[in-house]
Amino acid sequence: MFFATAAFFIVLGGLFSTPMAQAQETSGLANNAGLDNLAGQVYLPETDIRVFIFRLINIALSFLGIILLGLIIYGGWLWMTSEGDPGKIEKAKAIFKNAAIGLVIILSSFGIVNFILKALWGGEGGGGTRPGTAYDVGVGALGDGIIESHYPARGQIDVPRNTMIIITFKEVLDPKTVCGAANCDGKTVLKTENISIFSTANGAESREDADDAKVAAKIISAKVESKDNKTFVFRPDKFLGNQNQEQWYGVRLFGGKLKKSNGDAVKLGVADYYQWKFQVSTRLDLTPPQVSSIFPQPDNEADVKIIAGNAKQASWTITVIKTPNYFTPSTLTV
C-alpha cells in the first residue's frame, strides 16, 4: 500500500502547489526578480510551474503503474508455483487485493485532483482548460455555467467581415447592463465596459488581452438587439478586419458588471470573466439565405368548389311479414 499512499500525496501536493503558482502569476505584481536578463545565460526554463507539476504527477503515476504491473505478475507467478501450498496462495491473493486497492486509489486520486485543477484553471462548473494553457479564459462559464452558446465559436477561422456576434445566456439578463436601456431594440449601443469586442494580435490567450479589451482604439462599437434578454445579437458599426489580411478578434464578458434580471451579479468563474477569440477573413458574406426545406408542403393544385344541397330529414317504413317464433321451455313428465 506504500505506492498507493505515495501516489495520493504526490497528486495532492500538486493540487495545493498549482493554485499557489496561479495566485502568484495573477497577482499583478512583478515576480521575475530581475531574472529575465539572466534567462538566456543560465538557461532558465520557461515552462509554467503548473505544467511542470502536472507533468511530474503524470511521471510519478506512470512509475506507480509499472510497480502495479510488477506486483500483479509476481502474484500470478507466486500462485502458479505454490504447488497447492495454502500459505503461498493466500499471499498471492493478498498481493492481488492490495494491487487492486492501490489501483483504485491512484485512479480516484488522479481523477479528483484533475477535476479540481480544471475547475480552478477554467472557472466553475468543471469546464476548465487543459493543463498547459497559459491563461485562464473562464471557460467554466460555458457548458453548465450561465452561458449557453455563442457565435462565432471559440477559435473559429474564416469568419466573414460582416458577421454578427451572438451570445445566448441560460437566464434572463438586465438589458441595461448590456445596452444601457430597458429594451435592446437594435439601435441601442453596446456597453463596452461590460462586454468588450476588441482586435487582438493572434488567437492565443494572453495576459495582454485584459488590457486590449479596455483600449479604446481596439474596442469595436456595436448595436445590440434582443427579443427575450437571453439571446443578444451584436452588430458591429463597421466591417471587421480588412480586405488585405486576416484579423483576430476577442470578446470579453465582465461578470461583476453584468446583472441578471433579478439584480444578481452574473458569475463567470473564479476570475469572474469569460473570453473567446475568432479570426475574421478578408471577404464579405454576400450570399443571401437559402431555404432548404419548408413544412407543410405547398398545395399547388387548384381548389375545387363543391356545392352541396340542403339537408333532408330521413324517413322509412318497417313492415313485419312474419310472426317471430318465441322460445318455449321444454317440459319433462315423470
Results as ranks from 00 to 15, higher is better:
Ile195Trp: 01
Pro152Thr: 04
Asp48His: 11
Pro324Leu: 09
Gly84Pro: 07
Gly13Pro: 05
Gly76Cys: 12
Asn114Gly: 09
Glu83Gln: 05
Phe54Arg: 05
Ile53Val: 15
Asp174Trp: 04
Trp79Glu: 05
Asn194Trp: 04
Gln290Met: 08
Val113Ser: 00
Gly255Met: 07
Val139Met: 05
Phe239Ala: 12
Ile89Lys: 11
Ile166His: 04
Thr177His: 11
Asn58Trp: 09
Glu46Asn: 09
Tyr249Gly: 04
Ile49Asn: 10
Ile89Leu: 13
Ile146Ala: 05
Gly241Ser: 07
Arg283Trp: 14
Lys322Trp: 01
Leu107Val: 15
Phe8Lys: 01
Ala302Gln: 07
Val137Ser: 11
Leu142Phe: 11
Ala30Val: 12
Asp174Ser: 10
Ala271Asn: 08
Phe16Glu: 00
Lys322His: 12
Arg207Ala: 15
Gly75Asp: 02
Ser149Cys: 01
Arg161His: 08
Glu124Thr: 14
Asn325Arg: 08
Gly125Leu: 00
Ala210Glu: 12
Ala94Trp: 10
Lys191Asn: 15
Ile197Tyr: 01
Ser27Met: 03
Gly138Val: 01
Leu35Trp: 06
Ala182Thr: 14
His150Cys: 01
Ser330Val: 14
Lys257His: 12
Gly269Phe: 00
Ile307Val: 15
Lys191Thr: 12
Tyr151Pro: 01
Ile307Thr: 15
Leu29Trp: 13
Thr192His: 10
Gly145Lys: 01
Ala302Phe: 05
Lys88Ala: 11
Ala6Leu: 14
